[in-house]
Simulated assay, not measured.
Amino acid sequence: MTAGTPPVSDADDLRRQLLDRLQQLAPDSLDLIDESHLHVGHAGAQGGARHFRVKIVSKQFEGLGTLARHRLVYDCVRDLMPHPIHALAIEASIPPNQGLS
């Protein structure tokens, strides 16, 4: 946990914290889906670790490959992994018509 980051007390708090952190990427759209219910019994879910899917569209991804886009997203939440976030599926794209001349 980074300095000044309050502890995460429940799934709703974690969701709000993730959404707040991802605002650093100035998203045009952002959808955060808690998929933890799909991973019940999975070893990574033990102890309450959550599984999320993030769908984010941002101009900041322009000119970047998939790996670089994912790194930007992970940089926003790195200290929350592997607990309280066990897994983060990322769909990162640029706005439609972005990058076209």
Score class of each variant (00 low, 15 high):
Met1Gly: 14
Thr2Lys: 12
Thr2Asp: 15
Thr2Ala: 13
Ala3Met: 08
Thr5Ile: 04
Pro6Ala: 13
Pro6Glu: 06
Pro7Val: 14
Pro7Arg: 12
Ser9Gly: 09
Asp10Gly: 11
Ala11His: 05
Asp12Leu: 15
Asp12Asn: 14
Asp12Thr: 12
Leu14Glu: 04
Arg15Asn: 07
Arg16Leu: 12
Leu18Gln: 02
Leu18Ala: 03
Leu19Ile: 14
Leu19Asn: 08
Arg21Asp: 00
Leu22Met: 10
Gln23Phe: 01
Gln23Tyr: 02
Gln23Trp: 02
Gln23Val: 04
Gln24Glu: 15
Gln24Tyr: 12
Gln24Asp: 15
Pro27Thr: 06
Pro27Cys: 08
Asp28Phe: 05
Asp28Thr: 12
Ser29Ile: 02
Leu32Ala: 10
Asp34Gly: 01
Asp34Gln: 01
Ser36Phe: 05
His37Phe: 11
Leu38Pro: 00
His39Asp: 11
Val40Leu: 13
Gly41Met: 04
His42Tyr: 09
His42Trp: 10
Gly44Val: 00
Gln46Asp: 14
Gly48Leu: 05
Ala49Trp: 08
Ala49Glu: 00
Ala49Asp: 09
Ala49Thr: 04
His51Asp: 04
Phe52Ala: 06
Phe52Gly: 02
Arg53Trp: 05
Arg53Phe: 11
Val54Ser: 00
Lys55Trp: 03
Lys55Gly: 05
Ile56Arg: 01
Ile56Ser: 02
Ile56Pro: 04
Val57Tyr: 10
Val57Asn: 09
Lys59Ala: 15
Gly63Thr: 03
Leu64Asp: 04
Thr66Trp: 06
Leu67Ala: 13
His70Gln: 14
His70Trp: 01
His70Ser: 06
Arg71Phe: 04
Arg71Thr: 09
Leu72Cys: 03
Val73Phe: 06
Val73Tyr: 03
Asp75Glu: 15
Asp75Cys: 07
Asp75Thr: 08
Cys76Trp: 01
Val77Tyr: 02
Arg78Trp: 03
Asp79Pro: 00
Asp79Trp: 00
Leu80Tyr: 08
Leu80Ala: 09
Met81Ser: 00
Met81Cys: 10
Pro84Leu: 03
Pro84Arg: 08
Ile85Met: 05
His86Asp: 08
Ala87Glu: 04
Ala87Lys: 04
Ala87Tyr: 03
Leu88Val: 07
Ala89Asp: 11
Glu91Met: 02
Ile94Trp: 03
Ile94Phe: 02
Pro95Phe: 11
Pro96Gln: 12
Pro96Phe: 12
Leu100Lys: 15
Leu100Tyr: 14
Ser101Tyr: 11
Ser101Asp: 12
